[in-house]
Structure formats: structure tokens, C-alpha cells
Simulated scan of single mutants.
Amino acid sequence: MANATLIGIDLGKHRFFVHAQDARGAQVWRKKMTRKQLYAYLATCPVAVLAMEACAGAHWLGTRRA
């Protein structure tokens, strides 16, 4: 998971679908995560661009601190 440069997150109340791409745009991995798993992953992931849909949940998640 270290070579992901773009991480896309489809938000939900309890489950998130997460997709990661490398610099060429090829899929690196794709997973379904719980809120707790997503927080744990994002706290330890290397620097990457995060893309989320525009909604109140995205704003709240974007301001959350580990």
C-alpha cells in the first residue's frame, strides 16, 4: 500500500469503499472498511491525495484529528 498516490473514498454511515491508485492511474488496491479501520489506516498511510464526495460527512471527516 506504500505506492498509492491517490486514495478515493466513497463515504457511508458505517462502511466506506476505498480505492487506491498509483501515479500512472493503475489500481493498487480496493477495500471495504469500517469507520474505525479507515481512521487507523489514514493515521498511518504515506502521503497521498485523498478524494471524497462533497457532503457534510466529508467535511466532518476532513476536519477529524487522530
Rank of each mutant, 00 (worst) to 15 (best):
L11R: 01
I9G: 02
H59E: 09
Q27P: 10
M1L: 09
L38F: 06
K13D: 06
Q27M: 09
A20R: 14
D10M: 08
R15Q: 05
R24I: 08
A20L: 05
M33T: 11
C45T: 10
F16K: 10
H14K: 09
G57N: 10
A20T: 15
A20I: 02
T5D: 13
R24S: 15
R65N: 11
T34I: 01
R65W: 13
M1W: 06
W60H: 13
D10E: 14
A56K: 05
G57A: 05
R65M: 13
H14Y: 05
A54D: 12
W60Y: 12
F17P: 00
A54Q: 05
T5P: 05
I9N: 04
H59P: 01
L38P: 01
V28Q: 09
A26Q: 14
I9K: 01
A23E: 15
W29E: 12
A26R: 14
V47S: 12
N3D: 14
G8I: 08
V28T: 04
T34Q: 04
A26D: 11
A26W: 08
Y41P: 00
T44H: 12
N3P: 11
G12S: 14
L6N: 09
Q27I: 13
K32T: 15
T44S: 02
A58R: 06
K31L: 13
M33Y: 11
V28I: 12
M52L: 15
G8F: 01
Y41S: 10
K13I: 00
K31G: 08
L38Q: 00
L11I: 13
K31W: 10
G57D: 10
A4P: 02
Y41D: 10
K13T: 01
W29D: 13
T63P: 02
E53L: 08
L42R: 15
G62M: 05
H14F: 06
A4C: 08
H19C: 13
R30P: 05
G57V: 03
K36E: 15
F16T: 07
M52H: 06
R30K: 15
A23K: 14
Y41L: 15
C55R: 02
L42E: 13
V28E: 04
Q21G: 08
A4T: 11
I7C: 00
R64N: 01
V18P: 00
A56I: 07
P46F: 01
N3E: 13
K13G: 02
L42D: 12
G57T: 07
I7Q: 00
E53Y: 07
K13N: 01
K36W: 08
D22T: 04
A2L: 12
R64G: 02
G12A: 15
V18H: 01
R30D: 10
A54P: 04
G25P: 02
D10L: 04
L42Q: 12
Y39F: 12
H14C: 02
G62I: 07
G25M: 02
K32Y: 09
L42P: 06
R24H: 12
A56W: 07
D10R: 05
D10T: 09
I9R: 03
F17G: 06
D22P: 03
D22W: 11
Q37S: 03
A23N: 13
G62E: 09
Y41C: 11
L38A: 00
R35M: 08
I7H: 00
E53N: 10
F16W: 10
K31Q: 15
Q37T: 00
A48K: 04
R24Y: 06
G62A: 14
R24D: 15
T44R: 14
F17R: 10
H59R: 11
T63I: 13
C55T: 04
D22A: 03
A20S: 15
L61G: 06
L11F: 00
Q21I: 10
